[in-house]
């Protein structure tokens, strides 16, 4: 791109130092992931002895084997998929029509309805009333409770509403004159026109569902329903104190550290797979939903 020869000596130095600093920051970001991956691929003995630094020591897949034979791992992995896919679809089912309605100038009391949505971003009843409400609704320990209870959030609605508002009104009018009703206008015209924004919202939902931990921990007691993150937490904090696992470890080629690391790697992989999309749409999304009236 730029021609280095055009720069003065001071500029060259500046550019090079800058590059080194950024490189260092990037390495420091990447290193923990490399470290965890190497840990998961090393023997339990080497891991406990603190010999793993950068690359796997005495490469082995034993930790993964141990993780993959654990039924609870598969149960919670499946659950996370259920919550992520179900929750995202549920969110879109609410958010797309809701945001579209809020973007229509013909909506009576449009300011009021927008305020109803925006207010939930500024004021939040807090943990206790939300929990009691979920309990009163009979949504504790239920797949449906997790899926519906976090389906809508103001930020996503406003993000999509802003996008819909940017589409000229004449698209709606032309479609209406062509005989489309509002549902057809939305589905056949606005949704196809808003693919990037909808993808952004969908990805926001996917990430928050995949990573969701706190409410799953609070609302779900049944081990058959817990998602991966809650299971992961159990493993990381409780495996050390688990007596039967402790006994199992005595002659095992894996350790608490390598098993934890292996589960971490397993749960990061799906995020890495969709990361190219995340990077593409998230940066657009935060700018679209953020500082804008």
């Amino acid at each position: 791109m730029a021609n280095m020869n055009l720069y003065s000596r001071g500029d060259k130095l500046f550019v090079i130092v800058n590059m080194i600093l950024i490189g260092l920051f990037a390495i420091s970001t990447l290193y923990p992931f490399i470290y965890i991956t190497s840990l998961s691929l090393s023997t339990g003995f080497e891991a406990r002895a603190g010999n793993v630094m950068l690359t796997p020591v005495e490469f082995t897949l034993e930790a993964y084997k141990r993780v993959l034979i654990e039924p609870q791992f598969w149960i919670s992995y499946r659950n996370t998929f259920i919550y992520t896919i179900g929750g995202t679809l549920m969110s879109l089912a609410f958010i797309i029509p809701g945001a579209y309605a809020l973007s229509r100038p013909q909506l009576y009391g449009r300011r009021f309805w927008n305020l109803v949505v925006a207010f939930t971003m500024w004021f939040n009843a807090g943990l206790i009333p939300f929990f009691l409400n979920m309990r009163d609704l009979g949504l504790l320990d239920s797949y449906f409770g997790i899926i519906i209870g976090f389906a809508v959030n103001g930020f996503n609605i406003i993000l999509l509403r802003n996008f819909f508002e940017g589409i000229p009104q004449s698209f709606e009018e032309a479609a209406r004159m062509d005989g489309a009703n509002e549902f057809q206008v939305l589905w056949k015209v606005y949704v196809p026109l808003s693919k990037p924004a909808i993808a952004t919202v969908a990805l926001f939902c996917i990430v928050s569902r995949w990573n969701g931990f706190f409410w799953a921990m609070v609302l779900l007691q049944d081990e058959d329903k817990i998602p991966l993150q809650v299971y992961l937490r159990h493993v990381i904090t409780e495996l050390t104190d688990d007596e039967s696992f402790g006994a199992e470890l005595i002659n095992a080629p894996y350790s608490v550290e390598t098993v934890s690391a292996a589960i971490i790697v397993c749960s990061i992989i799906p995020i890495l797979l969709i990361y190219p999309f995340l990077q593409k749409y998230f940066s657009k999304g935060i700018l679209l939903g953020g500082v804008k009236e």
Binding site: F25, L30, N211, G212, F213, I264, I271, Y275, L278
Partner: peptide, 11 residues
């Protein structure tokens, strides 16, 4: 450097 943003707090 964007990556850690997408990783769960548990991890």
């Amino acid at each position: 450097v964007y990556l850690p943003h997408f990783i769960s707090s548990v991890i």
